[in-house]
Every structure is written in structure tokens, then in C-alpha cells.
């Protein structure tokens, strides 16, 4: 939340998981964490929290929804994004700084970072290995839904840069309508140079720009964060 509030023009509020409406907000962020202790599967129980009905209906109406880390897992479990996050190939919890390469130009989440931009972002997860079946993977690529891939520092998509075994080095994807974006890295933990990288702030700024341009007049944004 501090990451979002630290960006001029944005303000975020926590929403309790038992609440049922998100009407007053322009965008929704599902942050990381380990909701319900990751019991059963990561995100499997959180996906049925009362607030998720509002997240799902608002997402269907086109509101911007961002899920980072555990938030990505919840979005996949809720069926808002295809695929699933499974145990890291190494079987280790990975806590590291990684480089991701932006793969598309037209997503509302990456307007501030054109295709090919390298972002330094932290990761911290045990179940971040992205899996989809081959048909869905083909569709993801054909529809330009892969927003980010893990890359080396020179921007090459190589196996050594893949921290968790994700299929085709996928770090983040969006839905077909391009308003729901999930990624395992934490842009929220890289939004200030004092944290080692401010690249994550580009994601939030992009969202702000996207929201502003869809409106006739620009008003202060309220970004909702579901805790």
C-alpha cells in the first residue's frame, strides 16, 4: 500500500476480505502474502473470500485488476487468469532480485515501459512455477497475453534466468481483455530507489495513465488494495 501511496496522484486503501463491494475504486490490487497459510493450494481458499465476488464482477466489467505473487495465484484459482502456479522446480523457496523483460506494448499495466524494457523486480515465493497446457500456452502467445518473461541482465530469455521453472520463462500474464494482470515478482517492493529498484512504480504509473485516459477528465485515482 505504501508503494502505491508513494506515487503522486494515487491513493490506496485496504479492504477487508469480508467486505462485498469495490464500487468506489478505480482499480484493484491483490497483494502478495500467504492468504489462509497457502493451505490446500496457494490462493485456493482466498479465492472464495466474500470480497472475491466483487473482484470477479468488477474485473468482468473491465476494471483494472493487478495481482502480485499470492495475488496472482488467487487470480488463477478464481479463473480470472488462465493457468496455475505450482511448486518451484528447485523445490526451494526463492527470494531474489530478478530481471524481467516486458513483452508487449499495449497493456494498460506497462504503458510506461515499452516492449523490451527490462525491469529489476524482487521475487519471494515457493510456488511460482507457471503452468498451462500447450493449447492455452499457444493462445496466450497468439493473443499477446504474456506481459513479462524472466530474462538475464542483457534481456535474453534463457533457462538460467528462470528462477522457478515457469513454462517459457513466463513471469506475468494478462487475460484476453487485458484488464487483469498477474505476476509473481513484486513491483510493490521495488517502487523506490532506496529499495534497490524503482522499476515497479512503472507498473502503477502505467495503471494510473490507463485509467486517466479512459476518462474525459482526470481526477485523483483511488486504487484499492485487497488485503
Amino acid at each position: 500500500m505504501a508503494a502505491i501511496n508513494g506515487i503522486g496522484g494515487l491513493s490506496a486503501e485496504y479492504v477487508w476480505h469480508k467486505q462485498t463491494s469495490l464500487h468506489s475504486f478505480d482499480a484493484i490490487v491483490l497483494p502478495g502474502g500467504f492468504a489462509y497459510g497457502d493451505y490446500l493450494r496457494c490462493g485456493a481458499i482466498a479465492r472464495f473470500s466474500p470480497i472475491m465476488k466483487a473482484v470477479i464482477s468488477d474485473a468482468r466489467e473491465g476494471k483494472l485488476v493487478l495481482g502480485t505473487c499470492n495475488g496472482f495465484q488467487v487470480l488463477c484459482e478464481a479463473g480470472l487468469l488462465p493457468g496455475a502456479l505450482v511448486r518451484n522446480r528447485s523445490l526451494r523457496f526463492v527470494c531474489d532480485m530478478v530481471t524481467t523483460r516486458v513483452e508487449v506494448d499495449d497493456s494498460p499495466f506497462t504503458r510506461d515501459c515499452p516492449k523490451g524494457t527490462l525491469l529489476r523486480l524482487p521475487i519471494a515465493h515457493g510456488e511460482g512455477c507457471f503452468f498451462v497446457d500447450t493449447k492455452t500456452l499457444r493462445n496466450l502467445n497468439a493473443n499477446q497475453q504474456v506481459i513479462m518473461r524472466y530474462a538475464d541482465r542483457r534481456g535474453r530469455i534463457v533457462p538460467e534466468a528462470n528462477p522457478n521453472g515457469s513454462i517459457e520463462n513466463i513471469a506475468g500474464i494478462c487475460n484476453r481483455e487485458r484488464n487483469v494482470f498477474g505476476l509473481m515478482p513484486h513491483p510493490d517492493r521495488a517502487s523506490d530507489p532506496r529499495l534497490g529498484s524503482a522499476d515497479g512504480a512503472k507498473i502503477f504509473r502505467s495503471m494510473m495513465q490507463a485509467i486517466s485516459t479512459t476518462r474525459a477528465t482526470v481526477v485523483p485515482e483511488h486504487v484499492k488494495q485487497v488485503a
Binding site: 505450482v86 511448486r87 522446480r89 523445490l91 503452468f131 497446457d133 500447450t134
Partner: peptide
């Protein structure tokens, strides 16, 4: 059970 196409690193270990 994990589907056949899903990597099972735990099973492999």
C-alpha cells in the same frame, strides 16, 4: 494427483 503434463519435482526427488 498432478496431471501427467505437470512437472512434479517432489516426485522426482
Amino acid at each position: 494427483m498432478p496431471k501427467a503434463a505437470v512437472l512434479d519435482p517432489q516426485g522426482n526427488a
